[in-house]
Nucleic acid binder design. Structure first.
Lengths: 205, 205
DNA sequence: CGTGAGTTTGACCAGTTGGTCAAATGTTCC
DNA sequence: GGAACATTTGACCAACTGGTCAAACTCACG
């Protein structure tokens, strides 16, 4: 946030929020380059010059949106409790990520879109914030494994697997939907994932 | 293929191939809308009008590329042998998909880009060709499970899991690379996946 | 070689897009 | 009620983009 929340007019608050909401819609559907400022403006119920009165450029809308979303996107991982029961913590995290695929598919696709094109506007945050968070998580995983509370697997690939197995349902929704029909796209997904991680991660005695 | 391979000039063959190769590069990096005809032309070593002499439009380049690639992309799945040893067949398939992520990341990203944006130019093939192939595969999986040669899991989610766990490494390469450094992005991936599928799919006795 | 078909190109066009600007309209607050 | 400030808009612009076209050039082949 460049401007402090306090100094914002009633109208500024409403319009900035509407713009970011509209931008999420449009960017997640079309990617950065595929989205037009006009589309976003229309979706936000503003004229293009009016939108550009609130954000100086398309680029700025996008980065504002990214930094606003990244935090909440990563929150479940931060909530991982090192003192909890390892397998249950991981299952809980997986469930939350799967739920986010269902409830926040636009956010998932926004990141997917950006990542698949090399994440030109995200690399900095990836290599700092996310990297740190992942390193911390990996240490937790390793402690659990050393203590014999979790089967030994590569901790980073474990994390990737959770991300890809859950976000897949949001990012490639069209494909999943097509191939699951007439069932709903996520029918049975939770059971599948719970079984997968239980079998893989339950320590051998 | 609209034109039969036979009736093509030496030059036509060379240039059409160069264009498709260049198009794979450009489309996979930028998505359909993000790619410009000029970029593709330059990458193919042609002028824009010259490129448009071989393909009538950007759209046509893209669809030609898609239909050319989809077959080879799905080949490993077609090769699944219903009479083979179930677990080994699946591990073999997983290994091949992982190898394709390493060796053909552009193809993977091309499809990912398209799918994440709702696959407007692929839906037909998804709901016909791919759907049939998946249905066939599901039947094989179900036979194996009924015979007790494979632990019972949701067959469609099993397939999705293989796709997402392997293609992840190509599609989100930037992220994986950043978070795996200083190790190579795919170090340990094969072992991780083999362990995962063995543990999940080995039938309980 | 020369001729007709195949290939290449520069110039061009119309539509789209990100962004600007001055003027008009609203809002706030004394 | 009006001055100062915030918001909104229509008109506009330059850059980019997909695509066209006629003219020039190159190549295969008799």
């Amino acid at each position: 946030m460049t401007t402090s929340e306090r100094s914002l007019t009633r109208i500024q608050k409403r319009n900035r929020a509407a713009i970011l909401e509209a931008a999420l819609d449009v960017f997640s559907q079309n990617g950065f380059r595929g989205a037009t400022v006009d589309q976003i403006a229309k979706a936000a119920g503003l004229s293009k010059p009016n939108l550009l009165y609130y954000f100086p450029s398309k680029e700025e809308i996008f980065t504002a949106l990214l930094s606003q979303l990244l935090d909440s996107w990563l929150a479940p991982l931060r909530d991982l409790n090192a003192d909890g029961e390892p397998l249950e913590e991981i299952l809980q995290y997986t469930r939350r990520k799967l739920e986010m695929s269902r409830e926040m598919p636009r956010e998932s696709r926004l990141f997917a879109n950006e990542l698949v094109q090399g994440a030109p506007r995200m690399i900095d945050q990836l290599s700092t914030d996310l990297r740190v968070l992942v390193d911390d998580t990996v240490m937790i995983f390793e402690t659990w494994m050393t203590e014999g509370k979790l089967a030994r697997v590569h901790p980073r690939h474990l994390l990737f697997s959770i991300w890809s197995l859950t976000q897949h349902y949001a990012d490639f929704d069209v494909q999943v939907r097509t191939l699951m029909a007439p069932d709903g796209p996520m029918d049975g997904a939770e059971e599948f994932l719970e079984n997968l991680y239980r079998k893989m991660l339950t320590p051998a005695n």
